[in-house]
Write a protein that binds this DNA or RNA. Structure first.
Lengths: 243, 243
DNA sequence: AAATTGAGGTTGTCTAGATGTCTGCACTAA
DNA sequence: TTAGTGCAGACATCTAGACAACCTCAATTT
């Protein structure tokens, strides 16, 4: 079996790496969440290595959050196998301009909260003023693509809280609120995703994410209308900037 | 010394945990970025444990991104990252436009290589054509800030390979090669840093990095002159985009 | 019936030793 | 002077064995 094809020749990968890869495949393809792995002794025997070497291999899976060890009980499969090998060629290129403008997005949360420090500052309102907090998930090819947290001053655009559903937010603002907006500033950084985001985006937590903070203002009055923080999977999304 | 106060009694923390905590304190208080730790053999002797146990302890610090191991050289202290995350105001904001334009940068490598697939395509030249490969490190506040890999067609701007030292590359192109260039496209993504980059940027490998690929063309002829891939620390750098 | 004990299985930690691989540097030879 | 060789130092991997800590569950005791 391929499980036993451990190459010990010089120049090849370390044994523990090969085993961890073999196990990773097996876990992702054959196991489901909650399943228990064979015991360390058993696996060590299967791969013909010392238990320490096997443990080293499993350490990698633990690191990646694929499995969890329980002292005295066994090693269990954690995440339902996510095929996050979407394929390097299916990468998306995202134009910054299209961020708030286009496509369908599903509303995950919609609530009214008091503006905290950063948000209040960006929107130029008093701390504690009520803002609409909107969290949306955008999908491409029926795969999660990015999550956006929108903050809008409630007083300016109450219609958003009342009746916005799932179309383009910017189109909604224009037609229903008579507000035309434009982007003034974007800040881009690389971060580790929060647990919730990682879950929504179906990405492992150790994979980097791209975060874009944007401020949109009303076209004429220059008054801040929307502050957005969008998170992408680092591996599938690339932002494209054309000056 | 407290370094030697390892409690092996039952009910106490595992030895390797105690050592990793002891080392963590030591590294954070007595060492600065770039310092080298005593060798594993030395530390094992100091704590009176087997080298494997000591390695296990150091593994923790590596996991946390406090130190980085270099095969054959030693174990080195990285720049503290948590401080940066807390002090949001010490972050750098980088204007995309200034990427190639400004400031001093140190040349890490300068060589002539044949253009491979991606580079050849971007520069619109035959695969195998000779290009100048320039790797530069830019510092801010005498801290490493970003690393750039530049690719320029040798035939177009041979002066760069012959005499470029450490000023602004774009200024050099303009004065010495009579080439004015402008940016046509930038692609931004989040990645895990390569080992070398992590070392140069003094960042842990599990911390995300920001990667910007840009293409610069000659202003008049639109001919590609420079393809640049720049890597930043995700936590200290933010790209600022103003439309 | 309920509580306790104990055996066996499983992961966790530690030691000991051997060998592989990478780096830097001194030395040598052309 | 320069290129190459070789060696020592340092981290990387692998094996072997032992015991500790923890969990489950059945057998025993109360």
């Amino acid at each position: 079996m391929s499980a036993l094809m451990i190459n010990r020749g010089s120049g090849s990968l370390p044994v523990y790496k090969q085993i961890s890869e073999s196990l990773r495949q097996e876990v992702q393809n054959l196991y489901k969440a909650g399943d228990i792995l064979p015991t360390e002794a058993e696996l060590a025997k299967r791969y013909n290595v010392n238990r320490h070497t096997l443990r080293h291999a499993v350490d990698e899976l633990v690191e990646d959050g694929l499995v969890i060890r329980q002292h005295g009980k066994g090693t269990f499969v954690l995440a339902p196998s996510i095929d996050y090998v979407i394929g390097a060629n299916t990468r998306f290129t995202e134009n910054l301009e299209s961020l708030g403008v286009t496509t369908q997005s599903r509303v995950l949360r919609k609530q009214i909260i008091p503006a905290r420090g950063g948000v209040a500052e960006k929107l130029q309102i008093e701390e504690g003023t009520e803002v609409i907090f909107l969290e949306t998930l955008r999908e491409v090819d029926s795969k999660p693509f990015c999550i956006s947290s929108h903050f809008l001053p409630l007083e300016q655009v109450p219609e958003v809280f009342e009746s916005y559903q799932s179309s383009s937010l910017h189109a909604f603002l224009e037609t229903k609120c008579s507000v035309k907006i434009k982007r003034t500033e974007s800040l881009i950084s690389a971060v580790s995703p929060l647990a919730d985001d990682a879950l929504q985006l179906q990405m492992p937590r150790n994979m980097p994410a791209l975060r874009v903070k944007s401020l949109n203002v009303e076209m004429d009055s220059q008054k801040p209308i929307e502050y957005v923080v969008t998170r992408f999977r680092g591996d599938t999304a690339q932002l494209s900037i054309q000056p």
